[in-house]
Design a protein around this nucleic acid. Structure first.
Length: 485
RNA sequence: GGCGGCGUACCCAAGCGGCUAAGGGGGAGGUCUGCAAAACCUUUAUGCGCCGGUUCAAAUCCGGCCGCCGCCUCCA
């Protein structure tokens, strides 16, 4: 069994076979840098980050490109509102974007092209489309004539005729069809502009992705992704432009992530029902958001709420507690028993973990099922350690299990902190009314009380900490603190 | 109107023709513990929106119905 990917183009899962050898070239539509990102953007970024990491884990040589749309009407409008220049706005929100991504554990793609850095390439494609008769000029600029492209609608499964019938927007009389879209927009006075054979102007939205993917990944590449709302018209238009210009197939696999909803409605800027990534990270550890988003299959909608994020915290705490337990166990391990049936049983279970993880991810990047395999192995480790194993096998088995978890969870870039970092981060995220030194102090005080068998005082200290959201756990080697989740 | 998707326990969520319907959260009972916490064990859907049908076998396929959502305008 190999990797299978749901291809929007065919509407079904297909065996993944790269265009060339084991090289994978993928392009994902990035953000328009005119405002802070919301959790919908976070989902898309995290999903494709996990996909690219998994492809590498599977041994593919991945080239991952993700663009920035750094010139468009929203940026221009934002600049006017803010009394700044369009490129200042783009620079500001590009910087903010990187900050958010870093916190969410999203790696930078290999190539991060910007639209304004590819004007020449865009003009080249527009020229080809004009030469081949797919484009025409009006007083406003250059338009792509969708009726000329036979395959138009193949991705979004719609035909021009039925769309024309349902069109809800008034028709621009200069365009030959309502669905014709701008390749080049002639600029008005005061607007940013680049020279072109069709007058000074700026590019239409869709052409940038055709130009950048073509330049950096070639005419035909493996994976093209983005949010499901980009299927039409953005990706449909990219196909029309690219295929018409090159005469070659464009992307082989189309991957689209589902939306985040709030009260069942799509989270979006225009509806105003969004949380920015910043908003959420004020209250939650970034990894909580990441785990939450990866706990649902990437194509399914996710109903977003703080309540759901709060449900994610204890589940993660379970993993970190066990990581801590394994560390403690290994550092104090003493061999004093012969191999037993417990060792053998655990060996079999632990040995299959990695395969199960891969099986889940191979099935169209089923991160939800993959995360579940981590919880499975966590339970098995605890069950095994509860039996106080101490044979020569034991140490190796726990080391291997810990290593496998680290590797597989690492592919999703989750559970990568140390348990201490996790508790400290939770302490901050929960805005606990107590600092670490104070907690340590109280733990020492309580230790004395316990030695004196002053259970009343020991319990008072514990209750006091509990009221501040701190839980104490008495272990063989001492007492540790955790954040109540 | 056209196209697409969704409805699985108290909550979140896998499963997409065949082992007793994953996993997490929560609840109940138990083991352990000075007491706790954590961990583990047992338990919590004879059932997968409703009604029919196909099949030896259906959350899973087909038809109808109900409810919800998305795209068709910028949108991750």
């Amino acid at each position: 069994m190999g990797l299978k990917i749901y291809n929007t183009m065919s509407g079904r899962k297909e065996a993944f076979v790269p265009v060339e050898g084991n090289k994978v070239r993928m392009y994902v539509c990035g953000v328009t840098v005119y405002d802070l990102c919301h959790v919908g953007h976070a989902r898309s970024a995290i999903v494709f980050d996990a996909i690219s990491r998994y492809l590498r884990f599977r041994g593919y040589g991945v080239t991952f490109a993700k663009n920035f749309t750094d010139i468009d009407d929203k940026i221009i409008n934002r600049a006017i509102e803010a009394g700044k220049t369009w490129d200042e706005i783009a620079a500001t929100y590009t910087r903010e974007y990187y900050e958010d991504m870093a916190r969410l554990g999203v790696a930078n793609p290999d190539i991060e092209p910007k639209a304004t850095g590819h004007i020449a390439e865009m003009l080249d494609i527009i020229g080809k489309l004009m030469d081949k008769g797919y484009a025409y000029e009006t007083g406003d600029g250059v338009y792509y004539e969708v009726g000329k492209f036979a395959g138009y609608g193949m991705l979004s499964k719609r035909d021009l005729e039925s769309m024309e019938a349902g069109a809800r927007v008034e028709i621009d009389p200069k365009k030959r069809s309502h669905f014709d879209f701008a390749l080049w927009k002639r600029s008005k006075e005061g607007e940013p502009a680049w020279d072109s054979p069709w007058g000074a102007g700026r590019p239409g939205w869709h052409i940038e992705c055709s130009a950048m993917s073509l330049k950096h990944l070639g005419e035909t590449f493996d994976i093209h992704g983005g949010g499901a709302d980009l299927i039409f018209p953005h990706h449909e238009n990219e196909i029309a432009q690219s295929c018409a210009a090159t005469g070659k197939p464009f992307a082989k696999y189309w991957i689209h992530n589902g939306f985040i909803t709030i009260d069942k409605e799509k989270m979006s800027k225009s509806l105003g029902n969004f949380f920015t990534i910043r908003d959420i990270l004020q209250e939650f550890d970034p990894e909580v958001l990441r785990v939450f988003l990866l706990s649902t299959h990437y194509r399914s909608p996710i109903e977003f709420s703080r309540e759901s994020l709060r449900q994610t915290e204890p589940s993660m705490d379970r993993v970190y507690s066990t990581v801590l337990r394994m560390g403690d166990f290994l550092s104090s391990f003493k061999e004093k028993a012969r191999p037993s049936k417990d060792d053998a049983d655990f060996s079999i279970i632990a040995g299959s973990f990695r395969d199960k993880f891969v099986e889940a991810m191979d099935d169209d990047f089923n991160t939800a099922a993959a995360v579940a395999t981590i919880f499975d192995i966590i339970r098995e480790i605890n069950r095994y350690l509860d039996k106080k194993p101490a044979s020569p096998e034991t140490k190796l088995l726990i080391e291997k299990a810990a290593g496998d978890i680290k590797e597989c969870a690492g592919v999703l870039n989750i559970f990568v902190k140390t348990p201490q970092q996790w508790y400290q981060s939770l302490l901050a995220a929960h805005k606990a009314d107590i600092k670490e030194p104070e907690i340590e102090e109280l733990i020492i005080k309580r230790r004395q009380a316990r030695q004196d068998k002053d259970w009343k005082l020991a319990d008072e200290i514990r209750d006091a900490l509990d009221s501040k959201g701190i839980i104490l756990e008495d272990k063989e080697y001492g007492t540790i603190w955790k954040v109540k989740v």
